[in-house]
Design a protein around this nucleic acid. Structure first.
Lengths: 223, 223
DNA sequence: TCATGGAAAATATTCGAATATTCTCAGATC
DNA sequence: GATCTGAGAATATTCGAATATTTTCCATGA
């Protein structure tokens, strides 16, 4: 339930809808009608419209002129393409980061990893669901890793792909209990700090390939 | 001067403003105020606002909440980053295209190149300005080249970067009279058809590096 | 049974005005 | 002289109603 805001700016509504999309409140492919959204977020059509246009730019919703907006659909095919693209882009950025990153960047990576390592993956009250804090620390670790590459354009592309991947990840909350995610992160960190480009890239690649493997069964029926 | 449209849908206005931005009607960094835009495009604030929000998603304008919108600024630093990123992304896509592209794709590349070759670079009436037809054929050739890669996500990223580059290219209409652009395109085409990945990538890389060299002097004063 | 047409309902789009915010600049204060 | 203040102007944002479009669904005819 979104908090009742007396004043609803488009930014706030954009963030609320975005959070709801990632949380799975609106199903993939579902039509997003104005009247219900206005009621839910306590805003007029104008601000809903602007928020949706913004989200369409981010690729989370699809704008269909004169028909309306719908939640972006998911498919196994798209997940594979997304993951492959993400691996290529992040490998590129990580290589540059390892090549160009300074000590200040290194420290931020170590800090982000430490935070991730010390954040419990599941919350105490709902062990079936991945904790919000962990999701945040996880995203932050991967973003910081690439941060040293020095290319705003490349980082922007990587951020967009991460958002899209998060959409999939949150939508299907399945996970492999045998998987040593912490170990994978540690491996990436160590290879990066050792400035071992090939090893770091291989580990990053394996990390994401694992994720798609886990999500695959949940998408089997979606084509 | 934009054609007087009795009915102004946001799509039409979006396309008009976009064309004007690429044509340099609105200067980089300039504030885009609603009243003048409403008058110029014959639309109400709502449709102008939606068009600008859309353009902000494409990165051509910058949205500053509660302050308004402005044309994205240009800088030498950004041009260099953009070009480097574009080279990396397009190299990646071209490699995949050469690896995976079928005969149908090959034919489209040949066709696009033929069209580009037979389109005059400058129009008869204004030899100082690059012809609209040529710009279009040029963009189409480069897009088709990557088309065979089979990754919608990667193609989407490449398209965004091409748009950004076009913004720079059109803004500064300088060009090098000694440059053999047609030869460069032919070289890329031949290496691609020969499925010589390394040669094709090297030629694509050189092609874009040349472009930044030519644009550089015009941006010297912009930092 | 299936296709077609065309009201009626549902819905998206657009508008212009009402409101809120930011900017400008003259005057006051230190 | 420099900085603050606040009224007024300029501007962006938000609203709800008016308009246009799409969808639904039932009647009609092949």
């Amino acid at each position: 339930m979104p908090p009742e805001k007396a004043r609803a700016s488009t930014e706030v509504v954009h963030a609320l809808i975005r959070a709801d999309l990632l949380a799975g409140v609106h199903q993939p492919g579902e039509k997003l009608k104005f009247s219900p959204l206005c009621e839910r977020y306590g805003a007029s059509v104008s601000v809903i419209r602007e928020a949706l246009t913004h989200l369409a730019g981010e690729g989370l919703v699809i704008a269909e002129p004169r028909i309306g907006f719908r939640v972006r659909d998911v498919s196994l095919q798209d997940l594979k393409d997304l993951t492959a693209t993400r691996i290529d882009i992040e490998s590129l950025a990580l290589r540059y980061a390892i090549e160009r990153g300074d000590v200040e960047w290194e420290s931020r990576v170590v800090a982000a990893h430490h935070r991730l390592e010390r954040t419990p993956m599941v919350s105490a009250d709902d062990p079936a669901r991945i904790a919000e804090d962990w999701e945040s620390a996880h995203g932050c670790f991967h973003a910081t890793l690439l941060d040293g590459c020095g290319s705003p354009r490349l980082l922007d592309i990587a951020r967009g792909l991460r958002d899209a991947a998060e959409f999939y990840r949150r939508w299907s909350q399945t996970r492999d209990p045998d998987r040593d995610v912490a170990g994978e992160h540690k491996g990436i960190l160590e290879a990066t700090l050792a400035r071992d480009t090939d090893a770091a890239e291989a580990r990053l690649r394996a990390h994401y390939a694992r994720t798609v493997e886990i999500l695959e069964p949940a998408l089997r029926d979606k084509r």
